[in-house]
Design a binder for these strands. Structure first.
Lengths: 747, 747
DNA sequence: TAAAAAGGTCACGAGGTCAG
DNA sequence: CTGACCTCGTGACCTTTTTA
């Protein structure tokens, strides 16, 4: 019966066999010569060309004309495509019995199916590609057990049946390159009639090859991210819905992974510095270990990490090529970028503790995009950042409490004189603190008392004159005025809203957002999440000073100095309240600059209207700062590193300092935040959420539960600022950037 | 250039065009006749057959021979297969321009239905659903050889043609979700009218509705529910993970919908009776309005309610066919069932206020399934319920505080004598209340003082001897002893655990559960949720006396009587403390019976081990009662309806009553609970959560936030019970069922 | 009688195994 | 770790059964 079916055979032969190969993968052919004409049974293994039934064809002498005799059962299962070449049909007019032996006999002699990876003989269509058993097994192992290979040969290894085992990295790369992926595999019997997917799949892969699953350059990668974001923004008209969810989802993925890795974070085990994974505690420095990133390292895990490369979306469940490449490719790696940025900035170097802030500012200014100079408000901040050049060291700037001095004194002003208040504000201060008189030096005690009063709830109400732009506040208390970003922000910072009221207001939308976030991300979104995660983590590392490693190193140095007796006993230092306040604000300036820089690096942040960017920064930057400063706090020892990581201050001393009650709040936050043991990457994501998200109450368990704490202290901070401003209307003692950023009264 | 490329066209034509259609899905054809031969460009819309470049073919007269002239660009992307038929190749030798209009002209005339499971091309209507060969075969294998799959991805795997093989569990789930079932199979030729329907949607409806995969009768539905639940229980080894989430999700869906419909429930607007939607306030009685069910009514809304009927899975986002069917089909409707059950029970009738409790008990006993009589503990409760036949009216039973009386007096005991305490307990009472002496009547004042002391936190500690079985308590304070249900329950009721401790302990798992719950429900789960919701709502309506409507009607009657002056002034009534206490407990007995009945009707409840059922009931039934009694409280007028809805009592009077401080707590709860304006259906769901869920702190915003309140008062109740028990070791004055249910000391 | 779906069949590929 | 070999689920095709 079979011999009857296959009465005739025909053959498609390209003038350029190689083209045929490219298009069809391996071809199985049985040729029988008879009557001087070729009689051929063509059968591919990869569905690209299958003739499984009868057709008779004869070709003319010119090889351009074919004659086909159709049998009773014409079953043509596939068609070949030979672009840019002439196909020649060779036919036989007489029936020929096809023998299976004949088929196999000619296998390989003409067009044996070859492994697209190594060129060996293919054993079938595995993971969407004709491949041999070896490459099939290899690929399977790679995607099941996450493999971290490394190439020592510039990633240019040739993959042949003989060399394929010499470089796993390049072999896997080739596997991806030829289109292998779990999703591409098709189970079941190969259809005789190809009603399904052979075309698209094959074409897809061949056309996809140029845009290989491996990222080409960081620039290109960045472009893709932005393009994706842009698309989303365009589609939704607002960046909120998607971008925010992307952040939250990224964070969620991270936290989930974190929990898996570190067990229950809800145990109240206190710990000291570093909210990071234990792996990072090993003291490895600048090794480029993925562990430094925490979350990204998690993405390298084999399953569910949600990591996928944009150019290879189909392989999201498999080992990420991007990841593996990044782990090995050196400077292109985001991980290396983190370290690189750290190393390349002397001001961020932990070796240069003294000159940190002095050197930082120029670098920070370089970060601010000059091309956006037309944007007035952002520019303003940037310009202010440029202007700030605090003296290195601690006693860099001061203000004298002198009623005659109405001008602001910048950080370069005179030495050790005490700050003064302008006369018009003295009555306010006098009201609050009867002991304070014009011209009198603001003593530590007075300042302390003042801050105490400021944070007194009763006083708070009096002094928390709305720090938010009234017109904005009238619109759902949002610091964002544009319609787009307005919906992003709700929390009014120091808005005179009742806490309860605020909470209930926020919780509603948090729940709604949560709902959306909990949606399992789509392929595209997962990709986006990964990219955003990368960007955020990278932004964090490149802008955050007190990372785990930096703090740890600083700690080591501090220990050394302690042992050498080089450090003075902090408790013996005479505390100049003005100095302390100045130092506090001054030391924060470069940090603020960095936070602003961080914000600007958050993917999609620049898509928001400028005004809203400002508002978001104003709203959230202190919270980010607070979040970062948690690293500076050893909640076990109850010690606070100063932002320059030069001096450690015990909590009780901090408390006694002017503004001490406020600084002490940092400890309170750290006590809740640090036990979560977040990695730097997670802190970065959390920070981005602080900036971008409207509300995060009740979102990611304990982690997010610390946010109200941030909010509360932020509120206090606002009140303090307002109080201070009342006392010092000309912003004496406020570094301009600090004032600019934290002053919510945009007028 | 295009005209040059497409120099020639060819056409495959089957003898059975429809077969071709079937094989290729949609075909776009442009035919041009020239030289008497057909010249055709074939192009599919779904990539199954694409001829995108040049090929020339001519056919002989016999239509069995074709002549092909290959152009310079032969691009044949696919081939059609015509099984069991002879294909005819019709060719043209001359160049033909393809017109796009011609292509699009034929677009849409041929439809390829898609697989409802994975989205692939459907091969027909299999197991009640348009599905592909793969899913068809997969489902067949699943239902023939029982398969035990497991999902490692939170059971939320996307099912696409590419991913369908990656998770059998989710694939099967999806199969069920879209309505696949053996019963739904339709054999034989499809009725002609079905084929004529225009769109796929129309066809979907017409085909799906008549041959609904799942039967629509309540009985059968109930069977299926149980089957589904059974499956889940079997799969997971515990009912916890899935069933609990189903409850929570059902509640979530409801609350969400509620919020949509009723706006912000967080406003503290007080309101009186009824925690229901305003729509229900219209006074429509027994109209069968869906509004009576609240949540189910919401499900009838067009969007996102999460409601879906198994019989019409594809239309889960549209108006629920089950819902609409039920709304119209009369007695089969669950909504009508509610009303029916209400109407058919004279004891529940609001018209019969006086004899309510007397008549209720027999009916309650009928509810208890006699077939389960072998279950000793449940039986015990049931038997007790049967035994309880309190006298109608208020002064039904009393206890005399008599040291000689050591026997328990049931509700039929002698008339008006005061309760007595056994001598061995009098020292305890004496210690607490020096004024009380053996044999002395328990006056209102004494009782009041006693209860005051009982609820004194300091005293509470002394008297809250662990009411939980010690062996259970040692295992995470669970009232459930079996390994299965143990994990369900954590909250130890009146366990001597510190509140804070308890809270933090609970929150952890609540968050975990929350996370799971927040997962958007899969198709199957959504179906399950709907079914569970229905069952719960139905159970609630059929067992809850103070539903909105009943209370409203009672209110009306009360108003009438008030106006007629038929009611005595409550404040003038002589308060017999014993009477009050007796009345209180007595009036609760039928309610407890109903709550037990309600619990037993909760889907899956009977799957739990008997022992655990008892524990769950013991743990939660009072909370449910409390929840139901909230309806009896008008927080605006500060009035309390008695459970029989016969007498209204102002709060201050309640407070002055013996046990008044305890009863007053009801107001406290109602103040938090009633403003949520839950519908009856939602209250039912909430009640089921109270029974089933281990913890619900922090789960559904304000609603769930009221739970600690329930817990707290439950605790007080436990303490009170224990105190009372100490005073009355032989349970004098405790109706047996009350004692049985609320006594956590299982020994 | 033919359409249509259930059920069977078996070519296939994923994944596991284990000697090398 | 590799890859030849094995098992088993898959699904395209086929046969059988049911129904219009």
């Amino acid at each position: 019966m079979e011999s009857e079916m296959f009465t005739d055979r025909f053959l498609f032969v390209s003038r350029y066999p190689e083209s045929v190969m490219d298009c069809n993968g391996g071809l199985d052919m049985t040729t029988t010569t008879q009557d001087g004409a070729q009689q051929v049974m063509i059968q591919t293994q990869d569905d690209h060309l299958v003739v499984s039934s009868a057709a008779a064809m004869t070709v003319g002498e010119d090889m351009s004309t074919a004659h086909i005799t159709a049998g009773t059962d014409l079953v043509v299962s596939s068609v070949i495509t030979v672009p840019n070449s002439t196909a020649v049909l060779t036919m036989a007019s007489n029936p020929v019995n096809m023998s299976l032996t004949g088929v196999s006999a000619l296998k390989g002699s003409i067009k044996a199916p070859t492994c697209k990876v190594c060129g060996d003989e293919s054993s079938g269509f595995h993971y969407g590609v004709d491949s041999c058993e070896g490459c099939k097994g290899f690929f399977r192992r790679c995607i099941t057990q996450g493999m971290t290979h490394k190439c020592s040969n510039e990633e240019k290894c040739e993959i042949t049946p003989f060399t394929r085992n010499s470089c796993q990295y390049c072999r896997l790369k080739k596997c991806f390159a030829v289109g292998m992926s779990r999703e591409a595999s098709r189970l079941g019997r190969r259809p005789k009639r190809l009603k399904d997917s052979a075309g698209p799949e094959a074409r897809q892969h061949t056309t996809n090859l140029p845009i290989a699953p491996y990222p080409t350059s960081p620039q290109e990668l960045q472009k893709l991210k932005m393009a994706e974001l842009q698309k989303i923004v365009q589609q939704n008209g607002t960046i909120k819905a998607d971008l925010m969810q992307v952040f939250l989802q990224a964070a969620q993925v991270s936290f989930r992974e974190h929990q898996r890795n570190h067990g229950n974070t809800n145990t109240n085990n206190q710990q000291g510095f570093g909210t990071h994974s234990h792996a990072e505690n090993s003291g490895v420095k600048n090794s480029g270990e993925i562990n430094n990133v925490g979350i990204v390292a998690n993405n390298g895990d084999k399953a569910e990490s949600g990591y996928s490369s944009l150019s290879s979306p189909a392989s999201s469940k498999s080992h990420s090529p991007l990841n593996s490449e990044n782990a090995q490719s050196g400077n292109d790696s985001v991980f290396h970028n983190h370290l690189h940025s750290m190393e390349s900035k002397p001001n961020l170097s932990v070796d240069n503790m003294v000159n940190f802030s002095a050197n930082l500012t120029p670098s920070a200014s370089a970060v601010l995009n000059p091309s956006e100079s037309r944007d007035s408000i952002m520019d303003e901040i940037e310009q202010i950042a440029l202007k700030i050049k605090p003296e290195p060291g601690l006693n860099s700037s001061h203000c004298v409490m002198d009623s005659a001095s109405g001008t602001s004194c910048d950080s370069k002003s005179e030495g050790d004189s005490a700050p003064t208040l302008p006369p018009e504000m003295m009555h306010v201060v006098s009201t609050m603190m009867p002991g304070i008189q014009p011209g009198m030096e603001l003593t530590a005690e007075a300042l302390s008392e003042m801050t105490e009063k400021m944070f007194d709830p009763k006083v708070m109400d009096q002094f928390s004159f709305s720090p938010i732009d009234p017109k904005i506040e009238s619109e759902s208390n949002s610091p964002c005025s544009s319609s787009m970003a307005k919906s992003i922000m709700y929390g009014g910072g120091a808005a005179p809203m009742e806490d309860d009221e605020l909470d209930s207001y926020l919780v509603i939308d948090a729940q709604k957002i949560l709902e959306d976030v909990r949606q399992p991300p789509s392929e595209v979104r997962r990709t986006l999440i990964d990219q955003v995660t990368e960007s955020v983590v990278e932004a964090h590392f490149s802008t955050c000073n007190p990372t785990y490693q930096n703090v740890a190193e600083a700690n080591e140095r501090f220990q050394e100095k302690m042992e050498k007796g080089e450090l003075p006993d902090f408790s013996k230092l005479t505390i100049n309240p003005n100095m302390v306040w100045q130092q506090f604000t001054t030391a924060m300036v470069p940090e603020i600059t960095l936070v602003v820089k961080f914000c600007k690096q958050i993917p999609g942040f620049s898509e928001i209207e400028q005004e809203d960017q400002i508002n978001l920064i104003k709203q959230g930057s202190f919270e980010v700062l607070l979040c970062r400063f948690c690293n500076l706090i050893d909640i076990r020892k109850e010690e606070l590193f100063d932002p320059n990581m030069k001096i450690k201050c015990p909590r009780n001393v901090v408390k006694e300092m002017p503004m001490g009650s406020f600084l002490d709040e940092f400890f309170a936050v750290a006590e809740k935040f640090n036990p979560l043991k977040l990695t730097d990457g997670e802190i970065g994501l959390f920070s981005s959420a602080l900036i971008i998200c409207p509300d995060y109450d009740n979102i990611f368990m304990k982690t997010i539960n610390t946010i109200p704490e941030f909010r509360r202290i932020n509120k206090k901070h606002q009140v303090a600022l307002n109080s201070m401003k009342m006392m010092m209307p000309n912003n004496i003692g406020f570094p301009p950037l600090h004032q600019e950023v934290y002053d919510h009264e945009t007028n």
